[in-house]
Design a protein around this nucleic acid. Sequence first.
DNA 1: AATGAATGAGGGTTCATTCAT
DNA 2: TATGAATGAACCCTCATTCAT
Lengths: 188, 188, 188, 188
Amino acid sequence: MDKRERIIRAAIEVFREKGIERSKVSDIVSKAEIAQGTFYLYFPSKLSVMPAIAAKMVGQLEEKVLQAVIPDDSWDEQLRQFTAAVFEVTGEYRDVSALVYAGLSSTEHVKEWEQIYTPLYGTVSEMIGRWQAGGHVRQADSLRLARLVVGLTESAAEQVYLYDSYDSGQEKAQKEELVEFLKHALQM
Amino acid sequence: MDKRERIIRAAIEVFREKGIERSKVSDIVSKAEIAQGTFYLYFPSKLSVMPAIAAKMVGQLEEKVLQAVIPDDSWDEQLRQFTAAVFEVTGEYRDVSALVYAGLSSTEHVKEWEQIYTPLYGTVSEMIGRWQAGGHVRQADSLRLARLVVGLTESAAEQVYLYDSYDSGQEKAQKEELVEFLKHALQM
Amino acid sequence: MDKRERIIRAAIEVFREKGIERSKVSDIVSKAEIAQGTFYLYFPSKLSVMPAIAAKMVGQLEEKVLQAVIPDDSWDEQLRQFTAAVFEVTGEYRDVSALVYAGLSSTEHVKEWEQIYTPLYGTVSEMIGRWQAGGHVRQADSLRLARLVVGLTESAAEQVYLYDSYDSGQEKAQKEELVEFLKHALQM
Amino acid sequence: MDKRERIIRAAIEVFREKGIERSKVSDIVSKAEIAQGTFYLYFPSKLSVMPAIAAKMVGQLEEKVLQAVIPDDSWDEQLRQFTAAVFEVTGEYRDVSALVYAGLSSTEHVKEWEQIYTPLYGTVSEMIGRWQAGGHVRQADSLRLARLVVGLTESAAEQVYLYDSYDSGQEKAQKEELVEFLKHALQM
DNA sequence: AATGAATGAGGGTTCATTCAT
DNA sequence: TATGAATGAACCCTCATTCAT
């Protein structure tokens, strides 16, 4: 496999295991099975892997959403599919995302964050556009709605995965509540 | 003033100025005007200030919400007051919150996060309960709604403050959109 | 009990448990059940307890020797009594003595070492003098002999207690060998 | 030269100059002309140089003894050669040895001590074996005798070098006394 | 491109000592 | 005499980065 990719995957694993401050480049390279110096052929510094990780995360989220949401299904079914997809990917990356964000913010890469999210917002915005065209969703700037929907759903997912006290029953209920919340928030 | 409090305040300022990784304990203590060693009489390590900061942030958020929301006003006015309060505090702490969250997650303090947020959720939950009692908000578990409302609002606020490209017009529009979104999401 | 004495005893215990570098004044005071500052009412610095410990050790050794050696017994019996006494006290302090010596040497207190040992050498020297008078021990400077005898015996004792591989059979054999060695070394 | 060796030599010099507690790793590396971090590529901690120093010391002692003692000379001449060798090396390392020993004992390396001394005991034991074969030394376990002889001689040497009050006349007398002591102790 | 030994600045933490009570 | 909170200098060790091979 391509070494750059190996580094990113290893970095994700290591950040997940140890958090950012405790993660060493040496951990990453040994997990990636490359030499210490090789890291610097692909990334100029430790923190510069962050944007790459973030992009990977959001990219995967977008991909998942595109796969999961079936345009021919009913719009509230699509809502369900969408939230399920976000929950799944957020669950997978739950512990890394804050680290990555913090990593970005501590290195003046913050502005890249918006740029990284832009395609996802676009995708969701289009989805909402279709629902509006179908007469299910009220007229409003679909990009603004997309941002609110994504933020809300991610936040709900994080809450579920953050707190130990959740059980799968809770998770299901929380998801249902979210779908209901979204349906009301969006519908005409 | 109580030394512990001095440390927390200084830490917030320093983290805000430099980010976590670049903040030295020596910066914190000099801003707090105490000796290097004194820090360790109150906190066992640099990162262990994090939960204290988080608690302070959320505490302030709750306080602001309680001040801002006037129960006798109309419910959508209250919604507006609520979002404005969250935007204000989030704006104030925008750059620290992700750091703090990341700091918490990297130090096995994650579980404290829920505990820190619990009182705020309680407050918002009661607020929603009043709205339900007034017949404005649909019947649903008010604690669940509170979590969604808080998550959504914080996320919206972060988005506004995160992206450089916002101007005050944008900010106003985004807030309006959020209130509208919330109104639909909650009403009967 | 007198606080100075409490400090010395606590210091011995702590040095024994942790070695000098890892022993903190705070360990000593908490073991002595006095306050941090009280230590400095009795000793000007951490290392200045060293000479006191050394004096205590050697004093105990001398006392033990005086108790154990019965002048009316046969001279080789006395030799046996003497070595047994040294083995006993050395065993008790085995791990501290080197520490104490090193502690002394790192603080320009080395010269006190000789002074601390002087009374013991005197005692042993007198003992040897009696044996010489009794015609059992060859004529030679009894102080020189005393030094050699004490050094040899302590060294033998340390070897026995230092090495894990010793068993009580070995210990007995080693003692016997030592007595034999001494008998030959001293006798006419 | 090999870096590990450079570190050991530098450490000896520094410990000698300052004692263990006052010796900084930074002193050692600057004397060794390597970088601070390089130290830790060869030794896991400051104290872990101790066993290496001890081994070097004892190794040199053994080498010196082998050089000095000429098997064809008379056995009491050999005794004299042996003690002279021990005095010389002990004199050279006089101020380090206690430090090293204390350093060893404070770091759970004590067991290495026996192992470090083993080859020297072997060498001396063989030497004594030859004397026994030549009919000069009484029959007794030669390894036990070796330990006693080494311990006695080192102790005598330390006493000579420890006490400021010695002059070269004293030293000579002390050595003579020791040889006499040993001759009696060993002979048939 | 790949290596990994070497670098050295940097900072978290410790702990002997002080001093106001 | 006794206390123990406060001090701050000191230092070990880490680890991102470099560079000769």
